[in-house]
Amino acid sequence: MSTQKTYEPKPYSNPYLVGVGLGLVLLAAFLIMGRGLGASGAASTLVAVGIEKVAPEHAANNNFYKEYLGDGTTNPLKDWLVFEVLGVIVGGFLSGTFAHRINFTTEKGPNVTNKQRLIYAFIGGTIMGIGAKLARGCTSGLALTGGAVLSLGGWLFMLAVFAGAYAVAYFIRRQWL
């Protein structure tokens, strides 16, 4: 007989309260850091630092990488966005642990294999990453921060995200049924 204790997952948080909390975090970011939230800047910083380690001359001559590497007197990995993203990862793990929701599965429909699902996720993530660079910001930066400061670009971006999602939903949903 097993004495291992099993835990039921805790219910999800109220989305309205979480939305208010996210708004307060965004307000705190504006008040403390002077700018809103975003994640693509952290990813770009990590890529720039990696390129600088592998090909320092190329990084020094590339305007995109120079923007994220700074003047060379400070460590770009000390950028607060890098710590924001690390905090999101650690916070998400702790939240899942305390709510007893940590498990290693692949969420997918019955008509999709694990390999197909991971390939689709990789392709979708790549498209989102390219879109984030073209739009000069990620979903959190454009939607949350842009929307909070009533940026026309932020609102147009979110409308385009929803329109794109609805446009492909019909074709993709068959994979989940």
Rank of each mutant, 00 (worst) to 15 (best):
T106G: 09
F104E: 03
V161C: 07
T97M: 07
K5T: 04
V149R: 02
K10Y: 11
N62G: 13
A43L: 10
L134A: 05
R136W: 01
M1E: 13
L177S: 11
Q116R: 04
A43Q: 06
I123E: 02
A99H: 15
G50M: 11
R35Q: 13
A165W: 07
T73S: 12
A132I: 11
E8A: 08
R173I: 02
L177R: 04
G131F: 01
V82Y: 01
L22K: 10
I102L: 05
N61F: 02
G154R: 00
R117N: 12
D79M: 00
R136Y: 08
Q4E: 02
K78E: 08
P15L: 05
L142Q: 14
A132L: 05
Y12C: 08
P11W: 00
T3F: 07
G147L: 04
A169W: 01
L94V: 07
T45Q: 08
G38S: 11
G34I: 06
T113V: 05
N61C: 01
A165T: 15
T6E: 03
E8H: 08
K108T: 11
Y7S: 15
S44M: 09
V85E: 05
I89N: 00
K133A: 14
G38P: 13
G154E: 03
R174H: 00
S95W: 01
I102T: 07
T97K: 04
P56T: 05
R136K: 08
T74H: 08
L26A: 11
